[in-house]
Amino acid sequence: MTFFLPVMAGPKGFIKPMHKKRKPVSHLFMAMNSPCDIQVDGDDVHLARELGALAEAEAHRIEAKYSRYQENSQLSQVNRSNGTPVEVDTEMMALLTYANSCYELSDGLFDITSGVLRRIWRFDGSDKLPAEAEIEALMPLIGWDKVTLGKNVVTLKPGMEIDFGGLGKEYAVDRVLMLLAEKTDSPILVNFGGDLRVSGPRRDGSPWRIAIESVEPDDPSAATLGIKSGAITTSGDARRFLLKGGVRYSHILNPRTGRPVIGAPRSITVAARTCMEAGIISTLAMAKGPDAERFLRDEEMAAWVLR
């Protein structure tokens, strides 16, 4: 069943654009394990190519700095610190401070130290749940409150790791969009693996049409969203779960219990002003499990919840 929060319904048969739709110029690349797409709604192909290259460079810069898979990333240095303080630059510090605020704001439901749980939870659709002892062994390594933030210095407890998985891609989308919007007035769409943001409506004033698989998988005609401003992100993945004894374990883990959130929707798509805000809200809504819809309604967010 699909739970549809109101007010996002656009009128059908709206005024058609004045001219034949000119296709935006698209620039595709891979970054952060995701297909990335930069679309520029303008006639200047040369400029679009230039902007695409700029976007690609910025995405790779962010990835190289904040990826936990790349050994030389600044993040890997922090994760390898084994209890010693690590000096970080302003940008990293700002992101850590941001993560800190999100942790406080969510009463610990948003925690970038919870990534270590992925060592034992593998959401491959199987029934292989980790043993109780495995979870208990990891719990001391989880908890943002165990991290000390100083002035440009971060200290983790030995064995702890930080994972920007819930922030990095969203941050990259926002950064890239702002960067490109400074270079051109042409409308732009930045889409990193489904986390996306637009600079404004298309040239003819129409919304960008975006296919979002998880919004309405059973109804292909409703599978596109119109977006004229702001960002859209989707949390949840209908294919990543564990099923044991009739219980469906979502791949969203509760950092406080070390276990998947029970009763979470299959996916949540959220529209917000920036990709970061949309991302945090959709992650938090997921973590609320059965209360996801109520949380979104209380926050008055435009959202699509798929159960």
Partner: peptide, 10 residues
């Protein structure tokens, strides 16, 4: 107001 937020005033 940033350049990408002029949809309303337009």
């Amino acid at each position: 107001v940033q350049p990408w937020e002029r949809d309303v005033t337009a």
